[in-house]
């Protein structure tokens, strides 16, 4: 997407379809209405309370991912509910990070990666030809294992995504809101012009979360966001994740099973070979899993 195509109309930003394709779509509307993302988002009302029956935001259908001829995800189907924390757990190499990265098409960056099946975001397959990955990643943000702030000021880090979209209206206010939502504002409000690299690891990670939410995504993907942090910074991130789920849908990959148990509403257990073995309410997974393999994995009898 070039800058010329970016408009200041916020409705347009809520779609992941490239502007030219979106234009074509309005001429030949999809009878199911599924691909009209802006309409479905408006209808579901993102400001609603967390309710018992959550809408599905993301859904994998028979998803297979290969790196050359190695299968990393094996025919996975699962639905991720809105405004919930969904944890993906499993041993190293089980495909949980690959799954996470396939949600916002980070695997596009890997030449060897090949995808089969569907990954629906609000009913629209993100691998359709008319989906703009950049627009997708604006709706589906990501936070990585190691905090990766830009070598810029705290303010510029948070404003970055909005500035590259030429979306600088009320910038100060939006930077402040993002920092507050990331539970960092009180600690940095007097040093916004200082380098982000001077912050502690835990603060840097919260800054990265602020940067991710500044562009108003719907989904935040987190790949072991606390594994490089000390216990206090970890518990701040965990508290933050629970708060974020009031506004956003959070999908988190973690090696720390107790962390998954503490903060997630749903847990998906992947085992070797990219197989999704069990997916259920977190309480069920950790108190009474159906699969003996899951039981053996989470009680540490294998792995």
């Amino acid at each position: 997407m070039t800058q010329d195509n970016v408009t200041d109309d916020r409705t347009d930003r809520s779609t992941i379809v490239s502007p030219e394709d979106a234009g074509n779509e309005s001429e030949t509307p999809d009878p199911s209405g599924e691909s009209s993302l802006s309409r479905s988002i408006a209808a579901e009302g993102r400001d609603g309370e967390r309710v018992g029956t959550a809408q599905t935001v993301l859904e994998a259908r028979d998803l297979n991912v290969y790196y050359d001829d190695v299968q990393a995800i094996d025919d996975v189907s699962l639905a991720i509910p809105e405004n919930r924390v969904t944890a993906l757990i499993g041993p190293s190499g089980c495909g949980k990070s690959t799954f996470l990265r396939s949600i916002n098409r980070m695997n596009d960056l890997i030449d060897a990666a090949r995808i089969e099946g569907e990954l629906l975001f609000r009913g629209k397959n993100v691998y359709d030809d008319d989906v703009d990955p950049v627009a997708l990643r604006r709706k589906v943000g990501m936070v990585f294992q190691h905090p990766n702030p830009f070598p810029k000021s705290i303010y510029d880090n948070v404003a970055y995504g909005l500035r590259i979209q030429d979306d600088t209206e009320n910038l100060d206010e939006r930077v402040e809101t993002a920092l507050k939502r990331a539970a960092l504002w009180d600690e940095v409000k007097d040093q916004l012009d200082e380098s982000a690299l001077d912050l502690s690891g835990g603060q840097q990670q919260r800054l990265c979360i602020a940067r991710a939410i500044a562009v108003d995504p719907e989904v935040i993907l987190m790949d072991e966001p606390a594994s490089a942090l000390d216990p206090i910074a970890t518990s701040k991130i965990e508290d933050l994740i629970e708060e974020l789920a009031e506004e956003y849908t959070v999908v988190i990959v973690t090696h720390n099973m107790q962390q998954a148990a503490r903060i997630s509403d749903r847990t998906a257990v992947f085992l070797t070979g990219g197989e999704l073995v069990e997916y259920d309410d977190t309480e069920t997974i950790f108190e009474n899993p159906e699969s003996q393999r899951v039981e053996d994995y989470i009680t540490g009898k294998f792995g």
Binding site: M257, Q258, F286, E287, N288, P289, V294, E295, I298, T299
Partner: peptide
């Protein structure tokens, strides 16, 4: 040990 599942029960 933070037991879970069958061990926890």
């Amino acid at each position: 040990q933070q037991p879970v599942a069958g061990d926890l029960r």
